[in-house]
Each structure stands twice: as structure tokens, then as C-alpha cells.
Amino acid sequence: MMIKLETKSLREAYGLCLVELGKRNKNVVVLEADLGKSTRTVLFKEAFPDRFFEMGIAEQNMASTAAGFALAGKIPFYNSFAVFASGRAFDQIRNSICIPKLKVRICGSSCGLSDFGDGKTHQSVEDVAILRAIPNMTILSPADAVETVMMMEAMLDVDGPVYIRINRNDLPIVTPENEPYKIGKIWELRKGKDIAVFATGYMVKKALEAAEELSREGIEVRVLNVSTIKPLDTKAVISHSKGVKGIVTVEEHSVIGGLGSAIAEALRKEAHPPIEFIGIQDKFGTSAKNYEELLEAYGLTSKAIADAVRGMAGR
């Protein structure tokens, strides 16, 4: 791996990787909107103050400025909370960045419900949906700190804009460290013949927990980590849909327009088993005293996944 990882924090891993990329490539520049302590771009600021640009609390300007950096040959990473990095700057992402297919990297930090305390204004439940609709965009959603590092290592080579969704909280590691990594691939983390579960982000861990429990009941669940949501590995989605009794998608995002929609779109021309979407049911977030309590309130638990699987497996 690019760095020696001693943390389970995705954002700490992201910040450390930014520094490493900064060492490897002098064209890497970082733009921040006054959330550097949270997004961990402060690490890059300390290492490369000349290549760090504090843009103030002005995400639209930050997005278009990043486009200007890219047009002059730099590889800009712009950072904010996912909800602001995406929605606040939608038109700038679309016009300044995606139409000319610029090599801008957008970090949507504190994604999904992971900023549990701050509530609905700061939680992003539709960022994947809106950005997925823009041509030329790549959307990444790492499951843990290990995958964050692997993605960051591969990220400079991706042509065009990239959006990476970074969870705010420490998460258990599910990604095997020693496999060669490739952006765009769907990772089979557990084999199983009965039901295929496509999950992304922290929900991969929840799916693995559900699979463990279901295995004791005799239901074998295949767990697939879809960490590149766009472009989607459609071939893999189709091949994993064959021969199973059902498909479950799990995401910490609205069920409208996110991973579930992407999987259903990929299967639209194929004969396929029923698909169940687990995600946020067309609602905004809310404040909670801790992350797990909030996920439970929105039905984003291993129990919810297990129940959906049991329903599809006819148990």
C-alpha cells in the first residue's frame, strides 16, 4: 500500500494519502472550504503550504477554481462535506468540470449519515444520484480506510473528474490488503449461491455481518462491494445476477438514483431475479447521538439486510 495504515478512519487515510500523492506528483494541489480539520486536508496544508488553497466558505467558486487549475495542468483535489461539495456546486461541477472532462478530484467528506450529530443540512442522501446523472463523472465509495488508500493510489491515473465519498467515522476493515487494486471493479468479498447483495461504503460491512448470520440458517449470501458506482462494472452485475434467487442493494444514500438504481439500470435488459433496495427511503437525515443509532433509525442495519434476504430466499 501507498502508506502504512495505522488508522480505521477513512478521512485520516484520505488526508495521509493526499500528502503522499503530493510527494509523488508536484502537480497535485488541494482546495479547501474551511473544513480542513474535518476533511483532514490540514495534513496536506502542513506538508505543502504553497500548494494548499483555502478558498473560504464558497463551494461554487472552489469548484470552478479547481477547473481552472486543471486547465493549467494541475491535478486539483477540492474538499468539503459531501452535501456541499456536490449539491452546492452542481452547476459548476457540470459546466466548469464535467463538460470539458477535467482531471478534478472532488472529495465529499462526512458522506451519507456519517455526520450524525449535525443533522439533515449536513448529511448527504442524494449526492450520488445527482452526480451520477452527469456525463464523464466517476463516482467512488470506499468501504474502509484500506480501500480509501488503494483508491487514492489509483486515482491520479483516472481520466476525467472523480468524486470520492468519504465516511466521517472509524470503520471496521473489510478490504483484503494484498490484492491488486483496480478502480471500476466489483469486489466479491464473500461467496454465496442463494442471494447476491450489492453494497457500498460502510454497508458492505453490514452485508458481511448479515451473511454470517444467514449462513448459520443455511442461506448462502454473496457479498459484492460496489465501490466504483460509476462507471459501473455492468458485466459483473449481470453475471452475479444469474443463478441467484434474489438481489439486494444496500447503500447509505437515498434509494432514488443511487447504487440500487444503478444496479437496476444495469439489469434492465436481462431476465433477472427480484431486486430489493435497502437505503434511505426518500427522506432527509436527522440528528442523533451516535452513528449506529442513526443507521438503525433509517433501517441501515445487518438485521434489515438479513430480513430482506430471508424474504427473497423464501424463509
Binding site: V29, M62, S64, T65, A67, G68, G73, K74
Partner: peptide, 13 residues
């Protein structure tokens, strides 16, 4: 509204 932001990025680069 986007041109000056883009120009700033270029100028800083």
C-alpha cells in the same frame, strides 16, 4: 458567473 473563478485557478497555477 463561472469565468472569473476558472481564471483564478489558471492564474494561481
Amino acid at each position: 458567473g463561472q469565468g472569473l473563478s476558472i481564471a483564478n485557478g489558471m492564474a494561481l497555477a
